[in-house]
């Protein structure tokens, strides 16, 4: 009898869930001061949605799978610093990167900074992002956090842009020369910054990627690009080390990290093959972004004005 009841209940749940959208169920929904936050389970994948667009994907069967390809570029800083101990991550979302770092690099101390308290709660309850002795979460604005702190990090990861039906947007105070100078001040001597953004890598018009590349070049001696193959995401990597790395060097360091077991991410070698050390074509026509002038709205809409 009990079993039949269970089966009926499961059937009902399946039927009810299937009425609106087949296979998709909203398991959490809230309006935070920043986003319309939804958690949606869809065919074994859990999605974090801000304002109707996907922010994080996670496999329910294995939380280490299902994530977006670009999040794996955040492992690339190991190439430049094989002794990473402390990582600061601005932007939590569903915590794909935090989950991976906690799993693969158990000796690394991570601090996450997320401005939206609802996102922190959702990451904890639905995406297995926990505060542990090696992972601390601060509810704070990323820039104010950088400015007020003293400790230095080996790596700073920035994933702070959001999307809506009208396109991507990026907080204007997290793209400027002054912001990168503050980030650089919080990085150790061999520090690496990795920055996720969406935009055009090719094309002759002013664009957020060209602008960020130029702006980061003003602060960091070396800047590299990792464009994703399955989306328009590009992870820009900047190093405090002035030593230039070429494609062969990156692959060689990558093989060494895999061989020594320092990096166990199965797709690491594949991801490193996305490496580019060329200046994006639109960098010359895109402005250097400053606190005084950071027209991110038009740059992210392909209507940016040349310098």
């Amino acid at each position: 009898m009990k079993r039949i009841c269970m089966k009926v209940a499961l059937l009902l749940v399946a039927l009810l869930g299937g009425i609106g959208r087949p296979h998709a169920a909203v398991v959490f929904e809230a309006h935070s001061p920043y986003h319309h936050v939804q958690v949606i389970d869809d065919g074994g994948i859990r999605l974090l949605s801000f304002n109707g667009t996907q922010e994080t994907r996670m496999s329910l069967a294995n939380p280490l799978l299902g994530h977006f390809e670009y999040t794996e570029f955040f492992h690339a800083p190991w190439v430049w610093n094989p002794e990473i101990k402390r990582v600061l991550m601005l932007g939590l979302g569903g915590g794909s990167i935090q989950r991976a770092y906690q799993h693969y690099y158990t000796n690394v101390m991570i601090e996450s900074v997320e401005v939206d308290p609802v996102v922190i709660k959702v990451a904890n309850e639905y995406f297995q992002v926990r505060e542990t002795p090696t992972h601390k979460i601060h509810q704070h604005d990323g820039r104010t956090f950088l400015q007020r702190g003293r400790e230095t990090y080996d790596v700073i990861l920035v994933d702070a842009y959001t999307r809506s039906r009208y396109g991507s947007s990026i907080p204007p105070h997290l793209v400027t020369r002054e912001f990168f100078a503050q980030a650089s001040a919080r990085l150790g001597t061999n520090g690496v910054l990795a920055y996720n953004v969406i935009g055009q890598l090719q094309g002759g018009r002013a664009d957020i990627i060209g602008a960020l590349y130029r702006t980061m070049k003003e602060v960091f001696p070396q800047v590299y690009l990792f464009p994703a193959s399955s989306s328009l995401n590009v992870v820009i990597i900047a190093t405090k080390s002035p030593v230039p790395y070429d494609y062969a060097r990156v692959q060689r360091e990558g093989r060494e990290l895999i061989r020594s077991g320092k990096v166990k991410l199965p797709t690491f070698a594949t991801r490193l093959r996305a490496f580019q050390n060329v200046t994006p074509r639109n960098a010359s026509v895109s402005p250097v972004l400053t606190d005084d002038r950071a027209p991110v709205e038009s740059l992210m809409r392909g209507t940016g004005f040349s310098d």
């Binding site: 001061p33 401005v115 704070h140 990323g142 104010t144 105070h173 997290l174 606190d291």
Partner: peptide, 9 residues
């Protein structure tokens, strides 16, 4: 924004 962050407030 540069001082108080990109906050709603």
């Amino acid at each position: 924004t540069k001082d108080f962050g990109g906050s709603f407030y």
